[in-house]
Design a protein around this nucleic acid. Structure first.
Lengths: 216, 216
DNA sequence: ACCTGAACACCGTTCAAGT
DNA sequence: ACCTGAACACCGTTCAAGT
């Protein structure tokens, strides 16, 4: 008999203008506090102060600290999947090399939009054990990417699911490592090339070439 | 003028038998508490209780909770690098395919030795922001692996450093993802094949073949 | 030398009272 | 409807006292 999981949702919907403003202020304050001292130093009181509200108000919208952090994380992860899903649709039926390049670009670009936030939210995910959120997003990514891979014109995959997950997760380690190291921007361009090489090589190695007359 | 970082070392060396036993008990208790509830639920009091000592004693050996967790993390990471370093030496001058296979095997095998502990320690690393420890280990890994890659008989790398880091970090994402998913053991064997394919394909794509008469 | 555990400070969370 | 902030519980850490 385990306790019912708290839904990672705001307790109250922003029906009124004032509360909408309050919620925005809280999110913004949370990012600021995260950037200053990381998750470990983040305190609900600090967030409330920075947002210009009292702790009580914060708890009116977010039943606890983890829900607040989870909601922020979800916002960011949704941006990422949506970008990936858009690319997957746009490049349906493209050639493998082109699709691989595009997916690497999209993924790297979202992460580079605000590197510090990406890094901070990464610790947040672990700190709050956001397995649900992360798995939901991962699932959506898998679906989008595997269907894109399946639609590729010149190649056919036999272990599609396995390949999809290895492909997508293999990008995370390198990107994470470089984001943490905070190298000059040019280094990320070299990383981009390497990641394209990595994914193209792997995806080719785990698929077979299709001859033009697939349907006779 | 920033505060001096606390060295992540025990405060006191185990000069006497009793304290050696105490430290062992504390480490063991820490693992147990971690496995039960993860880092977030880990409490110094719980650890002390489980180890059969008082909190005060715990703090005599570990100046704070993060040092305790850091020391445990370091123990595990040292096991990992040492295994990798050993393989790198053993396979000096081997052919690329063989080296790649070996490194994937070694890395996966250490992680699979106690999967739950691996997962738990992963959250620990993020929770305590163990950047120093992780970077030191990463550095050692890079040195060992890049020198092994350089010694490969049949291939030559031009962007050796970049390739080394992408190669090693690209394994982490997939392994992490599968460890979290806790699939049946057989799935890890399929993962092993995929990771071998991934690394072989990438390492080949980023190197050139050497003809036999390197020195005429 | 090593151990004990009550005491203190800090932070997450609540709730009675305010507008 | 929404906001406030003092009050409570819990956990990291200390230190005076014990063997």
């Amino acid at each position: 008999m385990r306790k019912v999981k708290l839904a990672l949702k705001p307790r109250k919907l922003p029906v009124q203008a004032r509360s909408k403003h309050t919620i925005d202020a809280i999110f913004e304050a949370t990012i600021q506090v995260l950037l200053v001292g990381g998750v470990n130093k983040l305190t609900t009181t600090k967030v409330a102060d920075r947002a210009g509200v009292s702790v009580g108000t914060l708890y009116q919208y977010f039943p606890n600290k983890n829900v607040l952090l989870g909601a922020l994380l979800e916002l960011h992860l949704l941006e990422v999947v949506e970008a990936i899903e858009a690319s997957c649709l746009k490049f349906r039926g493209a050639k493998l090399d082109l699709l691989a390049k595009e997916l690497v670009d999209v993924y790297l670009n979202v992460k580079l939009r605000s590197p510090e936030v990406s890094v901070a939210l990464y610790s947040v995910a672990v700190a709050i054990e956001a397995i649900e959120i992360v798995q939901a997003i991962t699932k959506r990514t898998q679906v989008a990417v595997s269907s894109a891979l399946e639609s590729v014109l010149d190649r056919q995959f036999d272990e599609l699911d396995m390949v999809t997950i290895v492909f997508t997760t293999s990008l995370m380690g390198p990107i994470q490592a470089f984001l943490l190291a905070k190298p000059p921007k040019a280094v990320f361009e070299r990383l981009r090339m390497q990641l394209q090489a990595l994914t193209k090589a792997y995806l080719k190695a785990s698929s077979v070439k299709i001859t033009a007359n697939k349907i006779p």
